[in-house]
Design a protein around this nucleic acid. Sequence first.
DNA 1: GACTATAATTTGCTTGTGCAAGCAAATTAA
DNA 2: TTAATTTGCTTGCACAAGCAAATTATAGTC
Lengths: 151, 151
Amino acid sequence: MNQKGGPLDEEELAAWQGMLSLHARVLRDLDKDLTARHHLPVRSFDVLITLFNAPEYRLRMSDLANRVMLSPSGLTRLVERLERDRLIERQVDTSDARSFQAVLTDSGRERLDEARESHDAVIRDRFTGRLSPEQLRQLGAIWSRVLTEEG
Amino acid sequence: MNQKGGPLDEEELAAWQGMLSLHARVLRDLDKDLTARHHLPVRSFDVLITLFNAPEYRLRMSDLANRVMLSPSGLTRLVERLERDRLIERQVDTSDARSFQAVLTDSGRERLDEARESHDAVIRDRFTGRLSPEQLRQLGAIWSRVLTEEG
DNA sequence: GACTATAATTTGCTTGTGCAAGCAAATTAA
DNA sequence: TTAATTTGCTTGCACAAGCAAATTATAGTC
């Protein structure tokens, strides 16, 4: 690919700092909005929607941790909180007694449903809605290229 | 712009989730690398380089907080740590006695210089170096469009 | 020149997160 | 069968970060 050395040039810097700024801005707004309107911090939302998209609304703790990009211990605590709120349940994995599965409850699905609208609105308002269809496609290509290569 | 309503479509979702993934991945690696090699967490690096780019290597606390996207109290604590390590100093602002200026010290500049190479290398390795020149330009255009509009 | 409103920073408190250590179940080997 | 190692998750601990309240200084008004 770009086989350069030395300091980042202007374009590289812009690409990096732009992502930092946008990420910080959108995530802050999203978290505030979801917390205020639905008592659901962004991390929690992320767990719920990840479970929602999983077969039978369930996932092993370790798989869930990977998908939401949280450390094992971090996930244990987050799941604890969500379980207290009855949004998810932990069930022993019948095929491996060391393992737990996190399962979305009915009220978890309800809460997710309510929150989803705010979630999508914020993201569109601050991010995707500001791009042309062309740019949206470009961005898709960019992420897939960057993320595909392992490392 | 895109005057849509309803849930995010596939492309919007990909644009959002791609950013989340990449951000998490690069930031984690960057933080580990800078901490391991230079005892300098990314946040600290960010403060140092922001000061480096400021006139006379100095900035008021509140301005600094805005640029590094940290809460006022968060910055107070971070600056405390950096001051303990003699990487920056706090000086009273002669024109406003409520205010402090954070100033990069000589050893702060040295440390920054050492760390910069790792910093740039990680970003290029994980991100900008994986893009074509074309895509790098597109990304610049995307960020500037998204970030320019206030809100 | 006192008086109020606003601004810049810090402090107290709470919360979320990661790392390292620990425990128990599973897997592999002897 | 039992010993050794690995895997999945949880706990103890430390720390970074935000919010709200407190502190101190400035600016504006009468």
